[in-house]
Each structure stands twice: as structure tokens, then as C-alpha cells.
Design a protein around this nucleic acid. Sequence first.
DNA 1: TATATATTACTGACCGGTCAGTTATATATA
DNA 2: TATATATAACTGACCGGTCAGTAATATATA
Lengths: 210, 210
Amino acid sequence: MPVTKTRWKRRKEARPQELTAAALELFVEKGFAATRLDEIAARAGVSKGTLYLYFDSKEELFKAVIREGLLPLLAEGEELMASMPGPASELFRAIVLRWWEIVGEGPIGGIPKLIFAEARNFPEIARFYADEVIERGKRLFVAVFRRGIDSGEFRPFDPQALVHIVISPLIMRVIWKHSLDCCGVTNVPLDDYLREYLELTLRGLRRDPT
Amino acid sequence: MPVTKTRWKRRKEARPQELTAAALELFVEKGFAATRLDEIAARAGVSKGTLYLYFDSKEELFKAVIREGLLPLLAEGEELMASMPGPASELFRAIVLRWWEIVGEGPIGGIPKLIFAEARNFPEIARFYADEVIERGKRLFVAVFRRGIDSGEFRPFDPQALVHIVISPLIMRVIWKHSLDCCGVTNVPLDDYLREYLELTLRGLRRDPT
DNA sequence: TATATATTACTGACCGGTCAGTTATATATA
DNA sequence: TATATATAACTGACCGGTCAGTAATATATA
């Protein structure tokens, strides 16, 4: 039985997903500007020309990576909110832990660092991310806070003013993981971090410090 | 009176500081990799060759920027700690506000974003920053926490575990300022942010929620 | 079923432009 | 005038995007 000697196959359906997967890995490893399209194509097992059959430009490729990796997670968070009628602190805890499972542990967690890193040089990407991801994520947390304030579980505060502050330690941890961690600069163990974070934050939010 | 027609002056003493100042501005605007040495030299009013008379490489230039901009501030924080014997929460507040005056408002505030952004591509820079700045800053905050715990003002907790969490909102705010803010993606007003941050954090740290 | 023809997914060399670092040369100053 | 200081032309490597051509596959025809 002779080995089939084809140099390549036609796989129109599978290519885009394979390309965005390779692109995600490399963008996270090296950043947007520093990643070469040749390398993305090579990792996906095609040539650079092929990449341009499926995506108009480097920026469009990046947007596709975001859409594929983060929008489903946001939808999941919104569903979680709708399906958990209990105390706001439990909902908050659930969303945070689920978020960490996907963003904290998976490769998509490299995206926030990349956005902050490259926003100024690629403002169109920044706007896209702000509109599609950040705004929507903030709305979710604000809704959680409102529920807690309305029920008297949380002290009265301005949810808009606290969103950034409250989620900062999560974003910072995932940024750290994909930057200084990679250079051997260590951080506190994850379990301790999340436990202490939830403790500190909920103590700060609650009306009565149970 | 004829216009002095000298094409350039010898200014051995002044050059280094002028070059690091120009470099800081441009590194913050564009990032480390994306900043061209030609442009730094031009902004400092010299040629690129001149730059190489004072700094061995782009990385050495960057280290000089860090040393000049951040090490004095760390020393100041340590002095503040020694000179304020009162409650830990007041000391914490004073250090945070002073930090924001310099890092939050000045151009040096662009450095943290830059470090996280480029750490993976320039690990030597990351190590330098981790050793010279991050470690020393953490030691300062840990000392403040210890004072509060020992005096009974703060609840008992592991200072090491909480440093990252507590300072995250400050770092995130300064990262945001130098990335998404520049693309028109706004944030809560600064005064509100700092007030709510101190309120939330001190509520989370204190033994009694006064 | 076998072969000719048409279609299209894919390749890889190439181009214009960029930039860190080098070096040959010019000039200000002691 | 000697030389430290500064310039600017130069090198070589790199990279996003293009496109003429090639090879795999679909379809028509006998």
C-alpha cells in the first residue's frame, strides 16, 4: 500500500478555526505586533497566502480570535445570573470562579494583557474590545451589585464606581500570569489568592461583616 | 549680530538626562519594541549615533529610565513609613496618595503597563524591574500591613497573600490610563475611584468596620 | 468506469518599507 | 592642533501584504 503523497489537502471548513487557534497561541506568547503572520500560518500547517484567503488583515484575524474565545463566555455569565436567584455574594462567587476556570486557566486569558499592551498602537482593536467585551462584562457585574444592594445584603454604594476596583485583582492576576510569571517572577499560590480576594472584597461590599 | 551658526554643542553632562527624558515619553507613548531610537534621539535634539555614545543598547537605555524615575520614589515611600508613627490606615492612605501624585499623574506612570506588556519578549527587562521595583514596593506594603495587624487595627491576615490583591486596583488604574483611556474608553473619575478604593480596601482590612 | 476539462484551495517568492546597530567623517573645544 | 563629541550615511535582518502559478478536487463526457 503506497503512502499517499499529497503535499496538502483542501480543508475549507477546518482552516478558519485552526488559524484562529494558532493565532491565539502566538498572540498570547508574543503580543499582536510581534507575532509574524508567517508563523501563525506555519503553526496552522498552511502558508501565509492561505491565511489571507480567510482573513482580510492581521487585525481582522485578531477580532475573530476575540469573538470566538470571549463572547460565548460572556453569554454564559449572563445565563448564570438569570439562573441563580439566591444571594448576590453567592452569585458573585460563582461568576468569579467560572471566569477563572476559562480565562484564568486557558490560553484566552492572555487576551487582556494583550489588549492593554497594544491598545495605544492599535486603537481600532481597543475600541472593538471595549465595546464587545468590557462594556458587556461591566454590565454583568453592575447587575450583580444592584441585586445585592436592593436586597440589603450589600451596603449602599455606586455600582458603576466600584466595578473597576472590584475586578482589578482578577484582571491583574491574569495579566501577571501571562507576563511576569513567564519570566520566573512568582506570585502567591492561586487558591490562596482567590480565597483572600473573595474574603477581602465581600467584607468590603457587605453591610454587615459576617 | 550674526546668528550663531554652530551645528551642535558638546554637552556631555546634560545629554544623558535629556535622552532618558525623551526615551521615557516615547516608551510610554508607543511601548518598548515599537519605539524607534531615531525618534528618541530626534526628540532629545541629537542624532542616533550620539545616543550610542551614552547607552550601550536600547535595553540599557530603558533600565536607566527606570532607575531615574522610580527608585527615588521608593526611597521616599520608605522614609514616609519611618516618619509616620500613627495608625497603619493613615500611613497606607498617605503612601497611596503620594504614589498617585507621582506615578498616577506623571509620565512615569506609563512604566507598569510597559513592563507587563513587554515582559515576555524582553525577560531581562522584566527581571530587572521585578528585582529593583516590585520586590521593594511589596516589602513596603507588607511592612505597613504588619504594623496594622500587630497593633490590632487590622484583622489577622497573611500580608504576603494580600499585597498583590490590595494594590491591584491602583496598578490597573494606571495601566488603564495609559492604554484604553488613550483610545477614548473612559473610566470613573479619579477622585471617586480613589475614595471608593480606600473605603473598600480599609473596610476589608480592618478588624472593626468603623 | 475512465479520462478530459474546469474550478479553486493553496503555495512561496517577492516587494516596499522599517529599524537596531555600525562606521566613516566632520566639528567644537581645550 | 589634538581629540572628544557629534553626525549621517550605511548595513543587514525583518515583516505585512500581494500575486502568478500549482496542485488537489469536482464535474462533464464517452
